[in-house]
Lab assay of single mutants.
Amino acid sequence: SASLEDVKTAVLGLLVILQTKLYTLPASHATRVYEMLVSHIQLHYKHSYTLPIASSIRLQAFDFLLLLRADSLHRLGLPNKDGVVRFSPYCVCDYMEPERGSEKKTSGPLSPPTGPPGPAPAGPAVRLGSVPYSLLFRVLLQCLKQESDWKVLKLVLGRLPESLRYKVLIFTSPCSVDQLCSALCSMLSGPKTLERLRGAPEGF
């Protein structure tokens, strides 16, 4: 439990870093931090981490990651405290083949985003970082199938509809809506759902 406290501190630090690096160059920093966060949550489900502190780590990670939004130009952003989304000039939600690297070039400044813009690109060529939603999407499927803490599952179920409104997140990387529907149906009809959940409301 003591070591998990250190892990929790590290994860919180990564969330803060991602919130900053999403809007700064090099964009590969945001890509790497995002991948680290998603990989860490995957390990929770792989090794069945069920301690309360592990659940709190997942809760905080999902609470942040499910706020990711994308505009029509595929640029990622996060809402501010007033709910207004600021889109990044440097990070996009497109999935890119590994051989192309985590970044790609664009020939010049991008068109203005639909929300308040981030800082304008400084040079004639900007390297865009790929932060594909499919990585998070796979972890969300694991959550629906394996999550043991009701608070975490409730958060994910509550945030998913709003995330799905931003269709560009889903359609720019390999996210299977069929698998999502299947996971939701299995969660509702499967007898093991109630068996594994802690803290579920009576009558769920």
Score class of each variant (00 low, 15 high):
P161E: 09
G158A: 12
L153D: 00
S39E: 12
Q179H: 12
S48G: 13
R58A: 00
G199C: 11
G118A: 13
I57Q: 00
D178R: 05
D178S: 08
V156L: 03
L78T: 06
S3T: 13
S130G: 14
Y49F: 08
K21S: 04
A70I: 04
L141Y: 05
R198Y: 09
V85Q: 06
G77I: 03
R69T: 06
A70R: 02
K46W: 08
Y34I: 05
S39V: 07
V7C: 06
Y49C: 03
E162S: 08
G118H: 14
V7Y: 02
R127Y: 11
S148W: 15
C181L: 07
Q142P: 02
V38M: 09
S72E: 14
D149G: 00
L144P: 01
P109F: 12
L73H: 11
L141S: 03
G203A: 09
L4C: 15
A27H: 08
A54S: 09
R196A: 06
M36C: 08
P161C: 14
S39C: 11
G115R: 12
G158L: 12
S182M: 08
S186E: 12
T31L: 10
P79V: 09
R75V: 02
D63N: 11
G77K: 02
L110I: 12
C143E: 00
A10Q: 00
V84H: 10
S189K: 09
R86S: 08
V38I: 08
M96V: 11
E162D: 10
K21I: 00
L73Y: 12
L197R: 03
E195R: 10
L160E: 02
A125Q: 15
L197W: 06
F87N: 04
L180E: 01
A10G: 08
R165V: 05
A2G: 10
K104Y: 13
P201Q: 10
V16I: 09
L155T: 13
T114R: 13
Q179W: 04
G158I: 07
G83S: 07
L4F: 13
P109L: 11
P161T: 14
V85L: 10
K145E: 15
G158T: 13
M187R: 04
L14Y: 01
D94W: 03
A27S: 12
T172F: 03
R196F: 05
S134Q: 05
R69N: 04
G203Y: 06
V139S: 08
M36L: 13
L51G: 07
E97N: 10
A30R: 02
C91S: 06
N80Q: 10
A30P: 05
Q179E: 14
P109E: 14
D82M: 10
R32K: 09
V177G: 02
S186T: 13
S107Q: 14
D149C: 06
T31A: 09
P26E: 05
V11T: 09
L22D: 01
F87L: 04
D82T: 08
Y34E: 02
Y49N: 02
T114F: 15
C181M: 06
Q142G: 07
V92C: 11
L12N: 15
S173K: 03
C93N: 02
P79M: 08
G190Q: 14
T24I: 11
L136A: 11
Y34W: 08
S48F: 11
L67Y: 13
L14V: 06
A54L: 04
L43S: 15
P52K: 06
Q142K: 12
A70G: 06
S88R: 02
S1R: 03
A122T: 15
E147C: 00
R86A: 09
P52G: 07
M187N: 01
A70W: 02
R165I: 05
E35F: 08
E97T: 15
P52F: 02
S173H: 04
W150I: 02
V177L: 14
R127E: 15
S176M: 05
M96G: 10
V168I: 09
P161R: 08
G158F: 09
G118P: 12
G158N: 13
L160W: 01
Y23T: 05
S39L: 09
Q146A: 12
S102D: 14
S130A: 15
K167H: 08
A54T: 06
S107M: 15
N80S: 06
L51F: 04
P201W: 05
E5D: 10
P201E: 11
L37K: 00
M96E: 11
V85M: 15
E99V: 14
M36I: 09
I57G: 00
A30Q: 02
Y49T: 03
P174D: 08
G108D: 10
S107K: 12
D6F: 04
S28G: 10
L188Q: 02
T31I: 13
P113W: 14
G108S: 14
V33W: 01
Y23I: 03
L141I: 14
Y95T: 08
A125W: 12
L12R: 15
Y90P: 03
A183Y: 07
S88V: 02
Q42P: 03
K21T: 04
P201D: 10
H29N: 08
S88D: 02
P191K: 10
D149F: 01
C93L: 06
T172H: 05
E162A: 09
G83C: 06
P132R: 08
T9K: 06
G115S: 14
G13E: 00
H74W: 03
V38D: 01
L4P: 01
G129K: 07
S55K: 12
S55M: 07
L78S: 07
H74A: 05
E5R: 04
T106M: 12
Q142D: 12
N80G: 10
Q142C: 10
G199K: 07
R196P: 03
M96Y: 14
V156T: 02
E195N: 10
V33F: 01
E5P: 02
Y90A: 06
S56T: 11
